[in-house]
Design a protein around this nucleic acid. Structure first.
Length: 354
DNA sequence: TGCACTAAC
DNA sequence: GCAGGTTAGTGCA
C-alpha cells in the first residue's frame, strides 16, 4: 500500500460507486450491521460486574484446557504465490511487465500486477473503477487452464517437502515440513528459502511468499508479512506466539472479515490481544461457536495436523452450482421468458418450475 | 427448514 | 455504460 494515494483512491471509488444499485445495497447491509452493533452495545452495558466475572472465570477454565494442549512441536509453511494470475500472464508475455495490468474484465478484476497497484487497483475491484484510477490499465482475460497448469508446477515442488500438502486454492498451500526438517537436519527457515528458490526455478520465474510457524493459522498470517517474494519466521515458543498474536490486528485473521471486525471493534478490540482481554464480554455476547473461534484466534492456536481422519472420511463436496448475473429487469413476462430460456423449457407449454 | 448473511479466493 | 463466480458455514425467523 506504500506509494498509494489513499485519499484519491477513496474519492474515485466513491464517485464511481455512489449512484449504483450495488452501493445502495451496501448501504442497506451496513445499516443492518449498525443495528446489530447497537444491540450488542446495549447488551454489554446491561451486564453486571458479577455476571461478567462469572463469564471470565468460565472462559479461563476453557483457556487453561486449550493452553494445556498447545502443540509447538510441528513446523508449518504457508506458501502464497505473488499476484499469481497476473504473474503467469507476465511470464507468457513479458511486455505486460512494463505496463499496469489486471486479469479480469470491466466487470471484475481478479488480480492486478505490481505495476498497477500503486494506482490503487486491487483484486475484487470492478474493472470500470480500476480504469478510472488508471486509464492506461491493460486488461487480460482470465485463462484458468493456464493457471491450473502453472499451479501444478508449484505443486510438484510442494510435494518434495510434504507429500500430503493441502492446497487452499490454485495459488496457496499448507505444508507440514516437520518430518522433512528432521530427516534433513534443516530449520523451517532454511526449508522456506529453499522452497522459494525451487518454485522460482521450476515455474520459470514465478515467485511466492512463505510464512513459517508452529500451526496453519499462524503460518497463513505470516506468509502475508513479507509479500512479495519474501518469508517470515515465527519462532515455536509460547512467548513468540503470544507477542506476535497480541499485536495482530483482528482483520488480518483468516475468517474475520469487514463485518466481524466491526462487531469486535464495538467491544473495544482492534488487536487480538485486546480481544483476549475482553474474553468475558465475548463469552457473554457471542454464540458458543463464535466464542471458541475467537478464543483459539486470540491464543494463536491453529491446526497442527493435516487431518486425524482416514482418507475415506475426508470431507466431501457438499454442492455444486452455476450462476450468471443478468441486467436488471422487473417485467414479469421478460423474467419468465429468461428463466425459461435458461432452463430449456418453452413458453406456454407448461412443465417449468412454475 | 429455508433464507440471509459472512467469508475466502 | 459499468459491481463476478463458487463453496462453506453460521444464525435467525
Amino acid at each position: 500500500m506504500q506509494g498509494v494515494d489513499k485519499d484519491r483512491v477513496k474519492k474515485v471509488v466513491y464517485e464511481m460507486s455512489k449512484d449504483s444499485a450495488h452501493f445502495k445495497n451496501e448501504q442497506r447491509k451496513q445499516a443492518a450491521v449498525d443495528e446489530k452493533i447497537a444491540r450488542l452495545r446495549q447488551r454489554a452495558a446491561a451486564l453486571g460486574p458479577a455476571e461478567l466475572a462469572a463469564h471470565t472465570r468460565a472462559v479461563d477454565a476453557r483457556v487453561a484446557a486449550l493452553e494445556a494442549r498447545r502443540d509447538l512441536g510441528r513446523t508449518w509453511l504457508h506458501c502464497d504465490m505473488d499476484a499469481f494470475y497476473a504473474a503467469v500472464e507476465e511470464r507468457d508475455d513479458p511486455g505486460l511487465r512494463e505496463v499496469p495490468m489486471a486479469v479480469g474484465g470491466t466487470g471484475m478484476i481478479t488480480t492486478a500486477n505490481y505495476m498497477a497497484r500503486p494506482y490503487g487497483v486491487r483484486s475484487a475491484m470492478p474493472g470500470f473503477v480500476a480504469l478510472k484510477l488508471c486509464p492506461q490499465l491493460v486488461f487480460v482475460k482470465p485463462n484458468f487452464e493456464k493457471y491450473t497448469a502453472a499451479s501444478e508446477e508449484t505443486r510438484r515442488v510442494f510435494r518434495v517437502y510434504d507429500p500430503d500438502f493441502r492446497a487452499g486454492s490454485l495459488d496457496e498451500a499448507y505444508l507440514d515440513v516437520t518430518d522433512y526438517c528432521s530427516r534433513h537436519g534443516v530449520t523451517g527457515e532454511q526449508v522456506a528459502a529453499e522452497l522459494r528458490a525451487r518454485v522460482r526455478d521450476e515455474t520459470r520465474g514465478l515467485t511466492c511468499s512463505v510464512g513459517v510457524a508452529p500451526n496453519q493459522l499462524l503460518a497463513k498470517v505470516a506468509s502475508d508479512i513479507n509479500k512479495p517474494d519474501g518469508q517470515y519466521v515465527l519462532a515455536p515458543s509460547r512467548a513468540a506466539v503470544t507477542a506476535f498474536i497480541s499485536s495482530l490486528p483482528i482483520r488480518r485473521v483468516p475468517g474475520i472479515g469487514k463485518v466481524t471486525e466491526q462487531l469486535v471493534s464495538a467491544l473495544g478490540a482492534t488487536t487480538c490481544g485486546e480481544l483476549f482481554e475482553r474474553r468475558g464480554l465475548v463469552a457473554a455476547l457471542f454464540s458458543p461457536v463464535a466464542l471458541e473461534f475467537f478464543l483459539g484466534v486470540s491464543l494463536g492456536l491453529g491446526a497442527t495436523r493435516h487431518s486425524e481422519l482416514p482418507p475415506e472420511s475426508e470431507p466431501q463436496r457438499k454442492g455444486i452450482s452455476c450462476e450468471r448475473t443478468f441486467k436488471a429487469v422487473s417485467d414479469p413476462k421478460t423474467l419468465h421468458e429468461t428463466v425459461g430460456a435458461v432452463w430449456g423449457w418453452e413458453e406456454g407449454v407448461g412443465g417449468g418450475p412454475g
